[in-house]
Each structure stands twice: as structure tokens, then as C-alpha cells.
């Protein structure tokens, strides 16, 4: 297995008025291709900040971060956009689907920015919807879908660019336990297919799906168990 994510002494500090918050206080960790990782910790422990840095949604204050061959601190805004487009699929707690937009168009959105022609976008989006079991809901708007269905649409969207890594931030946080199991089942299957999955959660039974668990406290990894 090759190293997909490599970070050393990663720090992130926020200035909040007069006080400085050390969200990450020097994290060094590496994740291999094909791993299934749960990132855990209390609120404010730095787990979300860690995820945002991995997905290039935010930039580190200091330290070294290399993801899928890219030294993220050396990339400019456009290159970071290309990196997110080509290597990362995001799944959010609140789904973040575009309202009043059919499921298939929501799934195809990353392909729009990747410059894929419309017909090809549609074909690939439908294939991913089929993969998450929503082929018959492709023209439904988010409002017409249940929470679990919306999150499956969001997963299809994360998959549509064939990313190396899926980053899921509390993907079951807004779902009931039965639907949570359905969604986790999809992640399990994706990991079996070889996709690296990193998910943030504070629920132990969700974290148990992963093969490796990182526990954050006060901006540091305090436990790393497989």
C-alpha cells in the first residue's frame, strides 16, 4: 500500500478577537491508500479542522501536508480547486444539495466545473445514482426526497469525479439510526471497492464501521487504533 495522506507537525490557529485558538497543535499522521478511517473526538477537539485541511477547504498555519501527491501549501487557489475537483469527494452533515435542482443535476455539479460535456455528465451522474440505489429518483428535487435519500444523492455527487478520497463530515449526524446504517452500508461497500474513506463522527457505532480510529483531543491525536 502507498501513502495517500502524509502530514507532519500540522498546526492551525484561529484569531478570535484577543484570544488565539490552537485548533490543531501539531498533528503528524499518515494514511495509506484504501484505508477506512474514523476521526473522533469531542466538539472543539480539532477533528473537523483536520478534515477541512485534508480537503483543501482551509489552509494550515504551519506544517507539512501532502495529499495524493500534492503538497497543498504550495498550491494556489486555482490549483487547489483542481485538486478538490480531481482527488476529493465531500459528504456533509447537512447534505448541501442545491435546492430546486433535480438529483441528477446535483450529482453532476462537480463535472460541470471539471469541464465535462453535458451528455457525458448526465450519463455519469445517472450511473452514480444507480450505484447508491436512487436511479428512479433522478429527477426528484431534494425537497421530495427523505433525509437518507438526500445523503445518498450527496454520496453519488462525491463519487462522480472518481476521487481518490471520500471525506465525510458527520455523514449520519442528521439521520435516524436505521437510515444511518443504510448510509454506512454504502460507505462500507465503497471501501471494499478500494476507495479511501475518512469520516468524522462522534458516534461509536458509526466509527466501528471503520478499520482505523483516530481520536482527537485539544488539537492532537491522542489515540490511533486499528
Amino acid at each position: 500500500m502507498s501513502t495517500l495522506i502524509d502530514c507532519r507537525n500540522l498546526t492551525k490557529t484561529y484569531e478570535m478577537g484577543d484570544t488565539t485558538i490552537n485548533a490543531l497543535a501539531g498533528v503528524s499522521i499518515s494514511i495509506e491508500q484504501g484505508e477506512y478511517v474514523a476521526v473522533m473526538g469531542a466538539s472543539g477537539s480539532g477533528k473537523s479542522t483536520f478534515m477541512n485541511l485534508l480537503g483543501a477547504l482551509d489552509t494550515p498555519t504551519s506544517g507539512h501536508l501532502r495529499v495524493a501527491g500534492n503538497a497543498l501549501s504550495e498550491l494556489n487557489a486555482d490549483q487547489l480547486a483542481d485538486f478538490r475537483s480531481g482527488s476529493i469527494g465531500f459528504v456533509f452533515q447537512q447534505f448541501n444539495l442545491l435546492p430546486r435542482t433535480p438529483a441528477v443535476e446535483n450529482v453532476a455539479l462537480p463535472l460541470v466545473y471539471a469541464g465535462v460535456p453535458a451528455a457525458e455528465r448526465n450519463r455519469r451522474a445517472l450511473a452514480r445514482l444507480d450505484q447508491v440505489g436512487l436511479a428512479d429518483r433522478s429527477h426528484h428535487h431534494p425537497k421530495q426526497l427523505s433525509g437518507g435519500q438526500q445523503q445518498r444523492v450527496a454520496i453519488a455527487r462525491a463519487l462522480v469525479n472518481d476521487p481518490a478520497i471520500i471525506l465525510a463530515d458527520e455523514p449520519t449526524g442528521a439521520l435516524d439510526s436505521r437510515t444511518s446504517e443504510e448510509v454506512m452500508g454504502i460507505f462500507d461497500q465503497l471501501n471494499r471497492d478500494g476507495i479511501t474513506i475518512i469520516l468524522v463522527t462522534h458516534e461509536q457505532d458509526v466509527a466501528d464501521h471503520a478499520k482505523r480510529q483516530l481520536v482527537f483531543r485539544d488539537g492532537l491525536v491522542v489515540e490511533d487504533r486499528s
Binding site: 465531500f90 448541501n96 455539479l109 466545473y113
Partner: peptide, 9 residues
């Protein structure tokens, strides 16, 4: 969201 899925500035 658009920025997260690869939109450039």
C-alpha cells in the same frame, strides 16, 4: 459547496 466540488474563483 460549489468551491468544494471544484469551482474556481
Amino acid at each position: 459547496l460549489r468551491l468544494a466540488v471544484g469551482a474556481k474563483r
